[in-house]
Design a protein around this nucleic acid. Sequence first.
DNA 1: ATAAATGCAAAACCTTTGCACGCCT
DNA 2: AGGCGTGCAAAGGTTTTGCATTTAT
Lengths: 140, 140
Amino acid sequence: MKELAQQLKEKNLKVTPQRLAIFQMLTNTDEHPSAEAIYKALESIHPTMSLATVYKTLDALKKANLIQELNVGEDCFRYDARTHSHPHLICISCTKVVDMESIYLDDIRKRIEQDTNFDIVNEKIYFYGVCPDCKEKKED
Amino acid sequence: MKELAQQLKEKNLKVTPQRLAIFQMLTNTDEHPSAEAIYKALESIHPTMSLATVYKTLDALKKANLIQELNVGEDCFRYDARTHSHPHLICISCTKVVDMESIYLDDIRKRIEQDTNFDIVNEKIYFYGVCPDCKEKKED
DNA sequence: ATAAATGCAAAACCTTTGCACGCCT
DNA sequence: AGGCGTGCAAAGGTTTTGCATTTAT
């Protein structure tokens, strides 16, 4: 995997400690954290970093297509370092968000383009349900 | 189609002129208006109605499952009187939102349940692209 | 050196809430 | 009569913006 700093440079983004920390955190987690969660997670390492910087950085990374913004229906956005389009599964019990690799997305796109005559360029797909862990707990 | 007033009563919602107007407007449009748009559209007929009432009414209708709330990634919600789950197509050029009747949604659900072991109860599916009208305009 | 990023505070935005008044059943 | 709905204003929370300072290239 390409160095994170290198990826920033290629997008003409200056490499600052704050940016690296945020980008790195997002690439190393699968928890789809919110801006607030990122801010708190990095608090101990970057005590002077402000929430505004987190938002500005996320905006820069988003525009550079290095991360994507998720809107799972909560009161805030979540962020995902996987930029290729893929559906997300949200557990309505524990609110965790899980990535889904979709093999059938291309098929669906094509069918929709045929049916509607839209040129599809992107999609946001969220499935809501109960995750295996929470199902188990309820059975107890 | 069942009388709108009747539908409200069945959900134990009192029938007020404001509620009827909002519910009626939503059932008679396919434009997926925002709260603000609803407010402005009804301004001439209900000059005293406040935006807070629009929000409260939308919340009541939503909880009664008479409408659904859409989050297409704008800075505000949109509302849809079709409550059954269906994908939406958003034109990235003119921002219009179009309903999609999906025959294959059941198939997709089943496959996802098999793949992930989630119990899926709902989904939000938004496709983004260029609508036929805007494609035509660009060719001119 | 220069342009961009940071951090603080304040603003902006949509949406929600509290409360008094009025209306529906 | 009683409770729910309305409307006004104020509050709420997340996200954005302005601006001076600091930092990266």
